[in-house]
Simulated scan of single mutants.
Amino acid sequence: MTHFLPSRTLRALLTCAVLSVATYAHAQNVFRVTTIPEEAATEQVRKFTPLASYLEKALGVKVEFTPVSDYPAAVETLVNKKVDLVWFGGFTFVQANLRSGGKVVPLAQREEDTKFQSVFISKTDSGIKSLADMKGKQVSFGSQSSTSGHLMPRSFLLQANINPEKDFRRIAYSGAHDATIASVVSGKVDAAALDITVWRKFVNENKVDTKAVDVFYTTPGYFNYNWSVHADMPADMQAKVKAALLALDPANPEHAEILKLNRATRYIATTPENYKGLEAAARSAGLL
C-alpha cells in the first residue's frame, strides 16, 4: 500500500530541504581561512592574503583570510566549523584533533615541517651558553599552545633534566614568536625559545642585532605545521584544496612569492601519523 504525506507536511518538508540546501550553498560562497597567531595580526594578513587570493582562483569560490586572537581560538574555530582551513602548529593540530574526536584532517605541510627546529636565544653578554646555564634565569616561551615556542623546547629541556617550573626563576609566555624576541632584546627575560624560521626571518630582515642577541642552542628536528580541514568538508573539496596547495610551484613567480611569504620551499602531503610523536611529547610534558 502506498502512503501519501498530507500536502501541508510535504510542503513543510520541501521548504526545509530548500532552506537547508540554500544555507549550505550560501556558506560555501565564502571559504574561510585562518591561522594560529604566531606573529602579529598585521603580519599574518601580509603573509596569508596572497595565498587566499590564489586559493580563490583555484577553488572558484570567494576566500577570506581572518586572523584570530590566540592559539585556542584557532583550534575552536575549526572544531566548531566556523572556518574551513586552518594553518596549525603541530601541537594545535593535536589539540584540535583530540577536541573534535579525530575529525581534523591534515592536508599539507611545508617541506621544512618534516624536520622543524626551535632555537633558544639570549643576549650574547648574558653568560648563557647552554641549556644548563638557564637555571636560575628568567625565561620566556611563546604561546602555551605553541609547538616550536613551548611544547618542543619544554620537551627537550625535560630530556636534559631541566624542569622549567623548578629550575627557572620565572617563566613568561609572550603569546607570539616576534614578542618572544622582543622580550629578550628588551631585557625582560634572560633567555627564550622560538620557531627557527621566525628567528631566521628577523635576522635576514635585520630586525635583530645578532651581536647583541643570538642563538645558543638549536633543538633536534621534529614534525610541525600543517594546513588542516574538518572531516565534514566534502571529500571532493578536500581534494581540491590539497591539490591547490601541492600545486604551488617555486618556478612560477607568483607561486614563489606566496611560498616565500609562508617561509616554504614547497608544500607536500602529510598524514595524522606524522604528529603522533608530538602528542606523545605533550603527554610526557603534562600538557595534555
Rank of each mutant, 00 (worst) to 15 (best):
R8Q: 14
T9H: 12
A12I: 10
L13M: 11
C16K: 15
A17P: 05
A17D: 00
V18Y: 10
T23P: 00
A25P: 06
N29L: 10
N29K: 14
V30F: 02
V30C: 09
R32Y: 03
R32K: 15
V33S: 11
T35P: 12
T35V: 05
I36N: 12
P37F: 02
E39S: 12
E43P: 03
Q44F: 00
R46Q: 11
P50I: 03
Y54A: 04
K57S: 13
A58V: 04
A58I: 03
L59N: 03
V61E: 11
K62F: 04
F65R: 07
T66E: 10
T66K: 15
V68S: 06
S69H: 10
S69E: 13
Y71C: 09
P72F: 01
E76H: 13
E76M: 11
L78K: 15
L85Y: 09
W87K: 15
F88T: 13
G89H: 12
F93P: 04
Q95A: 08
L98G: 05
L98C: 07
L98F: 11
R99S: 12
R99A: 14
G101N: 10
P106V: 04
Q109E: 04
E111K: 15
E112N: 02
S118G: 05
F120A: 04
F120C: 08
T124R: 01
S126P: 09
G127D: 00
G127W: 02
A132D: 10
M134G: 01
Q138R: 15
G142F: 01
S143V: 10
T147W: 01
T147N: 06
H150P: 06
L151A: 05
L151Y: 06
L151F: 03
M152W: 08
P153Q: 11
P153H: 08
P153A: 06
R154P: 05
S155G: 05
A160K: 09
A160M: 08
I162M: 06
I162H: 02
P164S: 06
E165V: 00
K166Q: 13
D167V: 00
A172C: 10
Y173I: 05
Y173P: 04
G175I: 09
G175K: 11
S183R: 15
V185I: 10
V185G: 11
S186T: 12
G187F: 09
K188Y: 08
V189L: 03
V189I: 02
D190W: 05
A191M: 06
A191P: 00
I196L: 12
T197K: 15
V198S: 03
R200L: 10
K201S: 12
V203Q: 12
N204H: 06
K207M: 09
V208A: 07
D209L: 04
D209F: 03
A212T: 15
V213W: 00
F216C: 01
Y217A: 11
T219K: 05
P220M: 09
G221I: 05
Y222T: 08
F223N: 14
Y225T: 15
A231V: 08
A231P: 00
D232N: 13
M233K: 14
Q238C: 07
A239C: 08
L245S: 03
L245E: 01
A247V: 02
D249P: 11
A251R: 15
A251N: 14
N252T: 13
A256S: 13
I258W: 10
K260R: 15
L261A: 07
R263N: 07
A264V: 05
T265H: 09
T265P: 00
A269D: 02
T270E: 01
P272T: 01
K276M: 07
L278I: 14
A282H: 08
R283K: 15
A285M: 06
G286M: 02
